[in-house]
């Protein structure tokens, strides 16, 4: 679906100064895949996305979507795109903005009103539809941005910081929507600083820093749990039994312990032993997700 081949982007100023925003970036994104893009500020995520939309041209290498140069693909098919900065004319009404963009997206006239109503309902914007864009709160503006990205059932969705400004209820709702959008015909790219979100939603995460692809982490369902090695266990009773089941357990106060295990099987066996000895377990939480671990390593290595 998407193929980056040695893509590089260098910004040059009129004075001759240059900044390499992306360097030798190669990655293939498959149809039906949900790919996360993670990286610290200034890592090159926005430049990559701008190149995917054809808003910037690579200085080196090639970038193709379905075998077409990126801009040619967008002009032919369109992309469901949510930008980090929701730039919609503040004077437009929310529902008018959606109707306009639905028209540009090629939705037939007879379907525009219906489709606008559908996405407004899907994103819970009913009571805000008649408001001017400038009157929307940050969260509602974000939902409007997401609504316009969902107007047409695009085969490619690019969501840049999609839950930025959303409250916890709508963050969860967004995750449900992405779950519903998952389809063998649709590719979804999500750029986010929120590693927990990427962990939950994506199949793989590309970690970039200093414009370079540092590593690609597989994050598919259950993968993180299987690879996590450090957990925090909270006990209500039987604190004194902890060391018998987990010899290396480190007390962290108030019945909480940090433990390191070799595998999920070992964790379960030790927990069973602990419970068998009469301890009451309140919670078991991975101390750091595999993705977070990998992110720290990748970003650390590149610096």
């Amino acid at each position: 679906m998407i193929e980056f081949r040695n893509v590089g982007k260098t910004y040059r100023s009129l004075l001759g100064n240059s900044v390499k925003a992306v360097e030798e970036f190669s990655l293939e994104v498959m149809k039906g895949e949900i790919l996360g893009i993670a990286g610290p500020n200034g890592a090159g995520k926005s430049t990559l996305i701008a190149m995917l939309l054809g808003y910037l041209r690579p200085t080196t290498g090639t970038l193709e979507i379905d075998g077409l140069p990126a801009r040619a693909y967008v002009e032919r098919n369109g992309i469901g795109y949510l930008s980090e900065l929701i730039a919609i004319n503040p004077k437009w009404r929310a529902d008018d903005a959606l109707a306009r963009l639905a028209t540009l997206a090629g939705i037939p006239e007879s379907r525009v009103a219906t489709r606008v109503d559908e996405v407004i309902a899907q994103l819970g914007l009913e009571e805000h539809r008649a408001k001017k864009v400038k009157a929307l709160s940050k969260g509602n503006l974000q939902r409007l941005g997401l609504a316009q990205a969902l107007l047409r059932e695009e085969r490619l969705l690019i969501l840049d910081e999609p839950t930025h400004g959303l409250d916890p209820v709508w963050t969860q709702r967004f995750r449900d929507i992405v779950g519903q959008l998952r389809s063998p015909d649709r590719t979804i790219l999500i750029a986010s600083h929120n590693l927990d979100e990427l962990q939950r939603l994506t199949d793989r995460v590309a970690i970039i820093d200093h414009g370079r692809l540092q590593r690609v982490v597989r994050t598919g369902h259950g993968h993180d749990q299987a690879t996590a090695t450090r957990f925090r266990i909270v006990l209500v009773t039987g604190l004194e039994k902890m060391r018998e089941a987990f010899p290396d357990a480190e007390p962290a106060g108030k019945g909480e312990f940090a433990v390191t295990v070799g595998s999920l099987q070992q964790l379960n066996a030790s927990l069973a032993e602990l419970i068998g000895k009469g301890a009451l377990v309140a919670s078991v939480v991975p101390e750091r997700s595999a993705l977070e671990q990998q992110f720290r390593e990748a970003v650390g290595e590149s610096q």
Partner: peptide, 14 residues
């Protein structure tokens, strides 16, 4: 200047 192009030209428009 205002970034409106981002949504407009993500649609299938030249």
């Amino acid at each position: 200047k205002l970034g409106y192009y981002r949504f407009l030209f993500a649609k299938p428009v030249r």
